[in-house]
Design a protein around this nucleic acid. Structure first.
Lengths: 255, 255
DNA sequence: CGACTCATTGAGCGAAGTCAACGTCCGTGG
DNA sequence: CCACGGACGTTGACTTCGCTCAATGAGTCG
């Protein structure tokens, strides 16, 4: 097993640990997970729509997205996954899915067999609970995305997405909220925002002219974090990246 | 305990059972859940935003929605819950939330204490898994809503929502997909669809003129199910209401 | 009866989409 | 080394879908 996969698993375990109290034994069990690694180029499927799953996909490097297609050929990205994210953890309990997982930029994936994840979850109920909790956070993000595409105009919408990715990437140790790489093209951002690439381009310019953020290539430089968060109506609470709060210690397995 | 609460719990247990294999003992444990029942009028909060949770809310009668507010006062419904749905099951693992739960029509709720649910989940890992699975289905629905507001025009959007509610209500034994009551006003539908009430009204008329569906008051009569599903680009797979498939028997707790 | 919510309809506007053209960058292969 | 194609970003002109504002009716509940 390469050091790359070790650090990928470590990033995943770390992400879980930030949200759920896990002891050494449980962390050790998580760190012993492993799987086959492979790399795909931008815009190619990691998992195709309708495909049956026997593995979950851990992002090691790059950026992956969950894509859903509409009849007329347009598509919508419903989730973005960065290094350390286990893309389809919920496929453990609901393996049949209608969406595809695709790389937005060259992306390295580690396929972790369901059986391994199930063994860990079965042996350590607190790990099962941590998995469930992470799925809940994914759902919170999804919920915010509904608000974003449903009720915010183009500038707020883009601002919100930038803020979300800034916090998540910062939390993952992949930059700071003020400066990071967002490995997506404008037309991929359009698919995430329910917009057209043309309008994303104009909106990017508008945010630059408002001196909020400069997006150059895939590099993002936030000039005015507060202004951007205000425009995007962004409150990071839903990402649950902060330290544990008291209520987080409530546990299904040890109430 | 009133017979109303018994049948509400039964509906919830039944919903879980349709998606997850549970034995008699597990079902019995679920059926022994109980809690305080109360009724709220339309448009009043069942749980307010930011409130800390010690209970999950089971819908006994009526229709409830999860509401999120945007700065400018507009709001977005991110989920709809019907009788038999446990609204905030995921609050078990992520109690702090930014959204409010509100009744769309006069609604009766049973507040089930977290501790009770936790005890059942702790005692029966398969029940915990069933809870997790139901949360995953909620997330699938959310994902579809992102697609709906992000990439479909008004007519398809409304058609998709009608189809979704038709299947869910039919599955809950509250009507058929051809004829059911949708306990929401046009302006509430607008909040769910990311539209204005004025445009919902026009879209309702358009669907009637296309002879797809007649919405009179809160009564919905589907005239052309296939046409409606085609327009809404609707595929019920994501609702996971069908009979168990082979892969659903994979279990975290008994692989 | 009056106040309220909800549905309905018209007129006008504006945010975002569509269509189209063009430039840059980059990888690949002759 | 350069020619070529493809992906991506940028910009302009025009269109349109859905929003805003506004008025009116129908139904309901206290």
């Amino acid at each position: 097993m390469s050091s790359g996969s070790v650090s990928a698993i470590a990033a995943f375990a770390d992400r879980l640990y930030k949200r759920s109290p896990l002891n050494d034994e449980e962390m050790h069990a998580l760190l012993s997970l492993n799987g086959h690694m492979f790399t795909v180029r931008a815009n190619v499927d990691i998992v195709s729509s309708g495909e049956d799953r026997r593995h979950a996909c851990l992002v090691v490097d790059g950026l992956a997205g969950r894509f859903e297609e509409v009849v007329d050929g347009r598509r919508q990205i419903t989730a973005l996954y960065m290094p350390g994210d286990m893309c389809d953890l919920h496929s453990l309990v609901a393996p049949k899915v209608g969406w595809a997982l695709q790389a937005l930029s060259p992306t390295t994936i580690m396929r972790v067999p369901h059986v391994q994840l199930m063994q860990v979850a079965r042996s350590y109920p607190k790990v099962a609970e941590a998995f469930w909790r992470d799925c809940s956070v994914d759902a919170s993000i999804l919920s915010q995305w509904v608000v974003n595409v449903g009720r915010r105009d183009a500038r707020s919408r883009l601002a919100h997405l930038i803020c979300e990715m800034a916090i998540r990437l910062e939390n993952a140790g992949l930059g700071t909220r003020y400066s990071f790489r967002l490995q997506a093209s404008q037309s991929q951002l359009a698919d995430a925002l329910g917009m057209t690439s043309v309008h994303v381009n104009r909106t990017v310019r508008a945010l630059r002219e408002a001196e909020l953020v400069i997006m150059n290539g895939r590099k993002v430089e936030v000039q005015d974090w507060n202004g951007l968060a205000r425009l995007g109506d962004f409150d990071e609470g839903y990402l649950q990246v902060g330290p544990w709060t008291a209520d987080k210690h409530k546990s299904v397995t040890a109430a």
